[in-house]
Design a protein around this nucleic acid. Structure first.
Length: 840
RNA sequence: GCCCCGGUAGUCCAACGGCAGAGACACGGUGCUCAAACCACCGCCAGUGUGGGUUCGAAUCCCACCCGGGGCACCA
């Protein structure tokens, strides 16, 4: 990182007694107020005045992998501006904190250290809690929860069983993503570019029997319910979710395949272009799907097996390579095109995905580049059925995908409208019973089983006689057995399976010998409902107290990283809808507004051990103090933009805070002095700043809020040194406003200022200054006179001036007349009281 | 390939379609000092990525392109 001017201590001292500007001792101030706040407990939800509006300020709970880092510092600083602002506005605020404390890092650490993951986990939680307190986030510390506490995961398990009762949790045997490094399966959402989202290992496939949540049942609602979030969620997140859900309209079309045995088998394909059915000249099925093996002609079976082996060997990463030549194998059977009656070849290829649509496609090479590449590779026929006016793809091997006039398409010929073409074909297919209009989603069900130890056990008992038996509710939680060290080593099956005493139980239904399900749940299950639990963390009659949830939810503001766009945020929305359908809540979206903060990077790149460009939060706080670090984070730029720490100057932030603090020592009037006799210009500046600050916080322009506060500090400094002087009541009013504004960002110095101004703690609950509207009214405003858009004169006018008067004044101005130079005025645009534009 | 977000002084960033500069960093100067740091004051630097369009007027709206960052991607 860039050289920063670090002093030994965050305060500058001189060795001799030379005159110097007063500074406060950052460390002493932090120690002092920590204790006071611990006693006052000022942020307890429910502590606002009776009848206060309730606001839920939520921030994504941390994973306890170590101490807090720069990223936490940023997200919490931004989040806390909003939470503290709401308190100042008199709202009742719920600002809870807890830990997402199940997960692999703790388990891996436990294997290394030969201990139980709880040791590492709970030690880190204490470290982070202490750091959060030092960092002065306005949490309600009475609501702490950890997802790894049995009293929490009891309800995670309970929810799983409720989902299962509703048919939303089920087990199936199918190919799954397998991380060979973490030795567990992964959800689709956790596979990024063919690699494990957590560890980066290349993901392979396995066939396993696993638990799934039926999130696909909610695909359409997850899509539809985004509409009201349009103005309060980042469009990027909405776009990513839409993309992930991947709705596409089209048709299922049935093709009859004549098998080698002479039997006929109907295979359904999904297409978004049923209108091009007349151009379907061959069919392709996913090579790795069962279907391929079932329909292949005997003499082609060996070739198919060889091909499938080849495909299996290549990882998803290889498959992602663009411009890879098309590969495939002829299955030796033919299908009947349902509209043309033609016999077309059936191939297997890896460019058709087994788990999208039906795993089989009709290939229309003329109008799909992938199909065309395949046709070219294997010499399959190409037939144009839409004339787009472009060169014929039969000759150019450039597929045309746009609109055009149908040709070679029987009844569609001559039609020029795609929508009509699609509608007509679907109608025809439905009449004949060979197809139907349909909607397809890219979203897959959520695979929730994990073959690891440190998670919530799946509360199911497998009995040979009774099958899957849910653990009775009164036996929840199913607690983890106390395993440690090598017992936890990943071996491809859950470590729980080897815990004989734990896994062998009697069946709750028949009493016979049975085994517990030895998998644990994906930790994203834990985090899909923690924000409900926060509303009543000690509740024992259910996952949450319905009244408490009614009081606080949906969360008014959720702050966290965009990396959860299609993971946590999608899953939480799904959980909320299910809870709604269960009748447990009366809303369907958990988070009314979402803010994605940017990342803290260094020298243009993400901080990482390998780059050696990490910045240590603890060291930064030791060098500059909590307030300066928080201020730097908030002032850096718009909250959603990345912060390059190399461009930041925490030293400058500290300098500003010292400057603001100094003001509080210069105020000589008594606390409670009425400001009405104070200097009007300074009063106007104060009230304008507060009015604007209100707007700025509410529109999340926190960096500008800081700039406005700096401006007020500068103005007040001038008023003290070369204006009305330190005794003027307006100076007190201004400095008190500065303290309150700063309390959102720099709580320690704000508190110190508040005390020096003669007030009792805590400034955090002092209340937002009331704006005197009359002080916002300006006696004169500057009107700009433009000639052809160029400024030629400025006039001081009344804000109430009429358009006619302003025009007259403008035309009479000497500079304007000179600029006009006798030219003919064609038009005069008047926007009283601010502007006149004369067009010549 | 498709979809988002961004491009304004040396740097980080402001600017309801209406004076391009709020704030800060860095830099320079003056005062204070033996000197420096600190502090106070003053100064400094851009016409808004490029090309068109709309408009009385565009950093802002529209179109095309360039550059940077991110997301999705053999999704039928």
């Amino acid at each position: 990182m860039r050289e920063t001017q670090m002093s030994e201590r965050p305060t500058d001292r001189s060795d001799d007694g030379a005159p110097e500007a007063a500074t406060y001792d950052v460390v002493a101030v932090q120690d002092k107020w920590r204790k006071v706040w611990d006693d006052l407990d000022p942020f307890r939800a429910g502590s606002a005045a009776p009848g206060a509006e309730k606001r839920y300020a939520l921030t994504m709970f941390p994973y306890p992998s170590g101490d807090l880092h720069m990223g936490h510092a940023e997200v919490m600083a931004l989040h806390d501006v909003v939470a503290r602002y709401w308190w100042q506005r008199g709202h009742d605020v719920l600002n809870p904190i807890g830990w997402d404390s199940f997960g692999l890092p703790a388990e891996n650490a436990a294997i290394k250290r030969d201990e139980n993951p709880a040791v590492f986990t709970y030690a880190n939680i204490e470290t982070q809690a202490e750091s959060f307190k030092r960092y002065a986030i306005s949490f309600d510390w009475s609501r702490r929860l950890n997802t790894s506490d049995p009293e929490y995961y009891r309800w995670t398990q309970w929810l799983f069983l409720k989902f299962r009762e509703r048919g939303l949790a089920y087990r199936k045997f199918s190919p799954v993503n397998w991380c060979p490094n973490d030795q567990t399966v992964l959800a689709n959402e956790q596979v990024v570019n063919g690699a494990c989202e957590r560890c980066g290992a290349v993901v392979t496939k396995r066939e396993l029997s696993q638990w799934y949540f039926k999130i696909t049942d909610y695909a359409q609602r997850l899509l539809d319910d985004m509409e009201p979030l349009e103005s309060t969620w980042p469009s990027k997140v909405l776009a990513m979710q839409r993309n992930w859900i991947g709705r596409s309209e089209g048709a299922h079309v049935d093709f009859d395949i004549t098998l080698a045995s002479g039997e006929t088998r109907t295979v359904t394909v999904f297409t978004t272009r049923p209108d091009t059915l007349h151009g379907a000249t061959f069919m392709v099925v996913a090579a790795d799907a069962k279907l391929a093996a079932e329909i292949v002609a005997p003499e082609r079976a060996e070739a198919l097996t060889a091909y499938v082996d080849e495909v299996r060997r290549s990882s998803d990463i290889d498959r992602l390579a663009t411009d890879r030549p098309k590969t495939g194998v002829d299955l030796g059977v033919t299908a009947t095109n349902p509209v043309t009656g033609e016999q077309i070849a059936v191939w297997a290829a890896d460019y058709v995905l087994a788990d999208y649509g039906t795993g089989a496609i009709m290939a229309v090479p003329a109008h799909d580049q992938r199909d065309l590449d395949f046709a070219k590779q294997f010499g399959l026929p190409v037939r144009r059925v839409v004339d787009t006016g472009e060169p014929n793809p039969e000759e150019t091997y450039e597929a045309t995908t746009g609109d055009g006039t149908y040709v070679n398409s029987g009844p569609l010929d001559g039609l020029g409208d795609k929508a009509a073409g699609i509608a007509r074909i679907i109608e025809q297919l439905e009449e004949r019973g060979t197809g139907t209009g349909t909607v397809n989603f890219r979203l897959r069900d959520w695979l929730l089983s994990r073959q690891r130890y440190w998670g919530a056990p799946i509360p199911i008992i497998h009995c040979e006689a009774c099958g899957e038996v849910p653990v009775p509710e009164d036996q929840l939680p199913v607690e983890l057995p106390d395993l440690k060290g090598s017992d936890l080593k990943p071996k491809g099956v859950s470590p729980l399976a080897a815990a004989e005493d734990w896994v062998n139980v009697s069946c709750p239904t028949c009493g016979g010998a049975a085994k517990r399900d030895s998998d644990t749940m994906d930790t994203f299950v834990d985090s899909s409902w923690y924000f409900f639990r926060y509303c009543s963390p000690q509740f024992t009659d259910g996952p949450f107290d319905p009244q408490a949830v009614r009081d606080w939810m949906p969360a008014a503001q959720y702050v966290g990283g965009v990396e959860h766009a299609i993971l946590h945020l999608l899953y939480s929305r799904f959980f909320t809808k299910v809870l709604h359908d269960m009748g447990m809540i009366d809303f369907t979206e958990p988070f009314s507004a979402l803010l994605n903060q940017g990342e803290v990077i260094n020298e243009g790149r993400g901080m990482s051990k390998s780059l050696g460009n990490g910045v240590d939060l603890g060291e930064m706080i030791d060098a500059y103090g909590v307030d300066a670090i928080r201020l730097t984070m908030v002032f850096a730029g718009p909250p959603e933009a990345d912060i390059d720490w190399a461009d930041m100057s925490p030293g400058g932030s500290l300098k500003f805070l010292q400057r603001a603090w100094r003001l509080s020592g210069d105020v000589t009037s008594e606390p409670g002095t009425a400001p009405s006799d104070g200097d009007t210009a300074l009063r106007q500046a104060t009230h304008r700043t507060v009015a604007e600050a209100t707007e700025l916080v509410e529109t999340q322009r926190f960096n500008v809020l800081v700039a406005r506060t700096m401006e007020l500090v500068n103005t007040t400094r001038k008023a003290i040194d070369s204006g009305p002087g330190s005794a003027d009541p307006a100076v007190r009013e201004a400095v008190e406003a500065v303290a309150i504004l700063l309390s959102l960002v720099a709580p320690y110095v704000a508190e110190e200022m508040w005390e020096r101004l003669g007030h009792e703690p805590t400034v955090a609950r002092a209340g937002w200054p009331v704006v005197d509207e009359s002080l916002l009214v300006q006696e004169t405003v500057t009107a700009v006179v433009q000639v052809k858009g160029k400024v030629k004169a400025r006039l001081e006018v009344s804000p109430e001036i009429s358009e006619a008067d302003l025009e007259q004044l403008a035309m009479a101005d000497a500079d304007v007349q000179r600029a006009l130079d006798g030219a003919v005025v064609r038009k005069v645009v008047v926007r009283a009281p601010k502007l006149v534009n004369i067009v010549v």
